[in-house]
Design a protein around this nucleic acid. Structure first.
Lengths: 262, 262
DNA sequence: ACAAAAGTGTTACTTTTACACCCATGA
DNA sequence: TCATGGGTGTAAAAGTAACACTTTTGT
């Protein structure tokens, strides 16, 4: 037999007080996206008991708005508090989507068996949120149920827990169809960025090459960018101009949608 | 004192067995849309105890997919089984959105007081679905909690219960932004329809006039319509050609989105 | 015969696409 | 000095917008 550690207080509380504290049978899961080294990344937790990756998720307190629950999950995992774009995108409610054995394994690793009538052992409907955050601002934080918290390249998703792969795909699909209305530039990039960086972001999300000249013309035509006099030094070649978003115009333009073909 | 009728069995069951049968604290509400006499209509229930209109809604059985619950609600209210477009669009989860007094009034009208610890008296998070149905196929059906079930002109919404007005507006907003991907023609119109009818539908949803010639050219260019040799007689003037959708091409075109400006 | 709605084509304008050369920087 | 990526403009093509007259039908 393996040596069991004591059950952490937070897990004990969840088991005993969860039903009183949280809405029953409903959770939130967050698809947290960042952009780094020309790649879209997703923040995932490694669940050692099942040896799979999972989306950061949590429960909804009885008096808490659902957005607040998602925001809480996001903060706990990333430490980021500002410039977050967070939006619900779909509810996942297949009757068999929850897998109680995952909870069981977690508690078993501390020598505890969850009673069958405990609130954790039931169907859970989850509300999917996606978040766009500045990669550089994130300090990934472990949760009590995870052994690792990492940015994973979106192209290289390994085995995810339960239906989380499905949730990720739905998030990306939503991201693509809503692109024209989303502040991806502002939230996925640092404050100052270059035109090529912005283009790479769009290319990555759309998964296609774009013409540099046409891309620049279109973006500038929206009138949402300020070109700075500074340039980005340190690149191996000609220095690119830095830009910032014109906040007011950006928000206004997004309401209409950044139309046109990419 | 008013004379009380006996509590209907369905309401008694809901109170006593609801907690065992349904997911706790979660519901579905349906924004059911139809098109008639050049107007977008929404199917609403009149709740006499509060004298307000309400969206048809229901609970989710413990082993039922959430879409099935919405579909069940839709069928119970409309009798329609075929050619339905039904899709979730948003979750409404403000902690104070549910109003237990509405249930209380309903049961009070039968002389019954709901105990404070009953499952009905709690926060409810609701999943909003919208449905596009053929107005002519619908036979509006009363529910046990309503005294009237009617198509209401979308422009003339009166006082709605709880946050239902908000839900309707969010549905319409979603309808507009997703227009290019939605089979509004197929699901909101009868099988055979005229070009002016289709145009009126788009004009109504977009809330703007469109040029007849440009509209026709664009729609035909998608290659999703079959013109029939029949014409629509009985109109007071020149008979319009009837069209049907080319199912295969329509579905395929929708995946790409019916692009272009209207 | 007239009023009302349906059918149809062309032109100007706007947007999108395609494409090539020079420039700055670090190695 | 050279390799690499960044900056810039123009012309052809496609798509969109604007617009008027004729035809059919019922009254």
């Amino acid at each position: 037999m393996s040596i069991k550690n004591a059950l952490p207080p937070s897990l004990k509380l969840l088991l005993e007080k969860g039903a009183a504290q949280y809405q029953s049978g409903i959770s939130v899961d967050c698809v947290i996206l960042g952009f780094h080294e020309q790649q879209l990344k997703i923040l995932l937790l490694k669940i050692d008991t099942v040896n799979k990756w999972a989306l950061p998720g949590g429960f909804i307190k009885k008096t808490e708005p659902i957005e607040a629950a998602a925001y809480r999950v996001l903060q706990e995992r990333t430490g980021v508090v500002k410039d977050i774009f967070l939006q619900q995108f779909h509810v996942f409610g297949a009757p068999d989507r929850a897998d109680a054995s995952i909870h069981q394994k977690r508690y078993q690793s501390f020598g505890v068996k969850i009673p069958k009538d405990n609130w954790l052992i039931q169907r859970f409907i989850t509300i999917g949120f996606y978040a766009l955050v500045d990669f550089d601002k994130v300090k990934a934080q472990l949760s009590t149920t995870a052994t690792d918290c990492e940015w994973v390249n979106i192209e290289q998703l390994e085995a995810l827990m339960m239906d989380h792969e499905n949730i990720v795909h739905k998030a990306l699909e939503t991201l693509r169809t809503q692109l024209a209305y989303l502040p991806i530039g502002k939230n996925l990039l640092p404050k100052k960025f270059t035109m090529p960086e912005l283009q790479k972001l769009y290319e990555t999300i759309l998964n296609q090459k774009l013409d540099r000249r046409n891309f620049q013309r279109k973006l500038l035509s929206f009138g949402i960018l300020n070109r700075l006099t500074e340039t980005k030094k340190g690149g191996a070649h000609k220095a690119a101009y830095l830009y910032t978003f014109n906040e007011k115009r950006y928000q206004k333009a997004l309401k209409e949608g950044l139309y046109g073909s990419w």
